[in-house]
Design a protein around this nucleic acid. Sequence first.
DNA 1: ATGAAATTCAAACATACGTTTTAAACGCTT
DNA 2: AAGCGTTTAAAACGTATGTTTGAATTTCAT
Lengths: 210, 210
Amino acid sequence: MAQKDTAGRILDAAEALFSEKGFAETSLRNITTKAGVNLAAVNYHFGSKKSLIQAVFARYLTPFSEQFSQQLNIIEQRENTPEQLLKLLVLTLNKSGLENPEKFGVFMRLLGLAYSQGQGHLRKFLTSEYGEVFNRYMKEVNRVTPELTPMERFWRIHFMLGAAVFTMSSVDSLMAMADHDLGTQSDVKDVVSQLMPFLASGLMANDKND
Amino acid sequence: MAQKDTAGRILDAAEALFSEKGFAETSLRNITTKAGVNLAAVNYHFGSKKSLIQAVFARYLTPFSEQFSQQLNIIEQRENTPEQLLKLLVLTLNKSGLENPEKFGVFMRLLGLAYSQGQGHLRKFLTSEYGEVFNRYMKEVNRVTPELTPMERFWRIHFMLGAAVFTMSSVDSLMAMADHDLGTQSDVKDVVSQLMPFLASGLMANDKND
DNA sequence: ATGAAATTCAAACATACGTTTTAAACGCTT
DNA sequence: AAGCGTTTAAAACGTATGTTTGAATTTCAT
């Protein structure tokens, strides 16, 4: 097939436009024009714009969630380090439809939007669909950071999530900025490999400054 | 005065609604209804919705930028630690109209939106108005991290920015989540004091894992 | 080949938006 | 008190949005 079916083309166009401009700023006419399909096709295939947004996430997260669940079965039965848990996350992302860095950046941008622009329907959809796997991963994080209080652990996990989502959301323009200011060519892979020691160090920081 | 003038009431309402729902999702009718003023008042006092957005940022950033510039004059002439540079940032934020934690969270949420929803006019406005002070601060960061390569420093600064912006953007719902899951009452002050050692540790992490 | 189901299409619908207009009300100097 | 610039008010304008409609077209098993 030279090109996908209508529903697939809509998903491709929607995902690209959403990640560039956000949900509210992207109209169905933008999407259908880019996809080369009729305007009514969105409501025909997905029912509504909200359902389309959820479908864009599901196309990434459902394969990832299944892969991740399998990997959790393994690591749940052995001792791990924080670095290993981080690496597991990145590797699983790469194994489930996000192998090329470009797609990876798009996905992280969508994830950031889900937090900053999630009106509620997205949040509910994501937690009800993928909350269980997320909780299993959190249990493993608890295991490798026994010296942290639940409070510390909770916040540091979100600090880490913020650093990752924020940076990867605008990784393209940041890399361009780095190239311009420092004259160094960058790669998403490089950024991720810089991010991981940063996150691990922050997670394990010993806060004895009182 | 029992209540501010029309322009001030518009700014208050706009800032609250923007930080809750984003720029595109907030209509002028939302704003003027909440402010208790006529719809046309926005275009009369600010010219356009874009200018109103810029005015909301300027009300915070102009006092902050002046305060911060003065503080920079001092610390530029002494040796500092990374922790001191972070503390300077937080203290100056608190001294320039953001003393109560609620306002602080609102401001951080707006800052996050400026990154994730900035269509261009905001970015240009912010860098042209406050870029110089930002660059002076960055020079000080360079001084206290001589062991980092420019590349490492660049990315770690943005990791830090991401952790701070992301977490503080949704600090209210995160604190509610922490209270629900862990049964512990939290405070924005507490979160900030947890964030700072995390950021400092990440910034100074020695990446010798090759 | 045929007929029913699935899909595509152009067009219109109802609604919400930012902005503009015009007139009325207000505040302040003279 | 009069007059004038400033501010507020209600209404309408033009445009863009998400959604629905009903007919045309394609798909596909019989």
